[in-house]
Amino acid sequence: MRKAAVLGALLIIGAMLLFAIGKMPAMNSRNAPDKTHVIPRYLEKGEEEGGAKNIVTGVILNYRGYDTMGEVTVIFSALCAVVALLDREKRGLSRSSPDASGVRSSVIVRTVVRFAFPVIVFFAVAYMMLHGEGSPGGGFQGGAILGASVIVFTLAFGLPESTRRMPLKVRIPLESTAIVGFLAMGIIGLAYGVNFLTYLLPGVHGAMAQTVRNLMMTVIEVGIGIGGGVIFISIVFAMMREDKYELQPDVPQP
């Protein structure tokens, strides 16, 4: 009964969506309204105005810089919410699944992870973050790969080993690098009397100004990458506490 009602409602919504799709301009068309107004200017002048060969990076850090700063605040707030709900991982108390079941991951998994881990980290930092303005990549992407690499390591070797190599007191300052880097680069401009997040310094012209801007944008990208990655790592570590309710069930009957 309930399922039938839901399916009926979904059919109506689907018909409305398909009707609207039938009215939309053809995909892939160069004359669609989304590509005719401001986009040609972004594509032509994006490198000059945005300061990066990768125009998406220019859009993220320049044209939409405030938006990206808000986004960095969002992931930082997410970490705050997770830590407020779950608390940090507790060393000695915490166990990840390989230890909780008493079974270690196999030699093959551990060996492959041991060889792949440095390569993944190198790819994330050197290619995605540092070279992200001239090739596919960027801070968030690098951060996601960095976080994923440590999560893979944790799944193979267990949480105690991971937290031993990445202790809380190292992670706490790194978690804020994204937002601190953003604010610092914005405020340097403000202190010299230009607008927030313009990445320009007065009195610096020509090629030097380009270098300064690239440097500031790279600082922000690496800050976003390290900060975002470490935030993901901390969130996952905070969630890995299976033993707490598997070994000591705290389940009041409702």
Binding site: S77, A78, L79, L85
Partner: peptide, 25 residues
């Protein structure tokens, strides 16, 4: 068009954040 890609990059990060909070709840 680079704008949708930049928008969706933001969207993915926000999606990850909301998922993390929802999972901890």
């Amino acid at each position: 068009n680079p704008i949708p890609q930049a928008l969706i990059l933001t969207g993915i990060v926000v999606a990850v954040s909301t998922t993390a909070v929802a999972l901890s709840l």
